[in-house]
Amino acid sequence: MSMFKRSPWMVHYDGASCNGCDIEVLACLTPRYDVERFGVINTGNPKHADVLLITGYINEQSQPVVRQIYQQMPDPKVVIAIGICATSGGIFSECYNTKGGVDSTIPVDVYVPGCAARPESIIDGVVKGLAVLETKRAAWRIERKKRNRVFRLPFFKPKASPP
């Protein structure tokens, strides 16, 4: 498939949800939907991951955990908010323990609606997220080149090409 240029690894965290979306994320890995045929692997380690899937809204106690997972992921990274709770708080938005959707804590790139979000929507969302990842990666590459230019040592300077 041309839309999956690389094998994105994802890490999944449940902010505070009814776990309906969590089991749908897991269902994506199983034979019926099998995202592994695109090279998507659900890894347990945030340091290996390109994509962060968050289900459920953010509350007081899960906020530092989510922030920590986000910071541990290497750049460039994409955050996908899955389910209505993750996008806006949904039916729990009036609860006393709610801080709001995931975007109240970390920047979100793609919102996947649905209560609970279907595996098909999650696959669509990951595809959208990968497009974002590709643009982010291009921008990041340019920035890295700039950074390298500053630190380049004089004897590594390329020879000027003859006219």
């Binding site: 449940d14 776990n19 509350n59 899960s62 609860c95 323990n97």
Partner: peptide, 26 residues
């Protein structure tokens, strides 16, 4: 980590609407 406090939502949702909240306990 996932405490929502949905038992107190009865104050804000009427008893028929609350069926949808009760379904989302789990």
């Amino acid at each position: 980590f996932i405490h929502r406090g949905l038992e107190r939502l009865v104050e804000k949702k009427d008893f028929q609407e609350f069926t949808f909240v009760a379904e989302r306990v789990c």
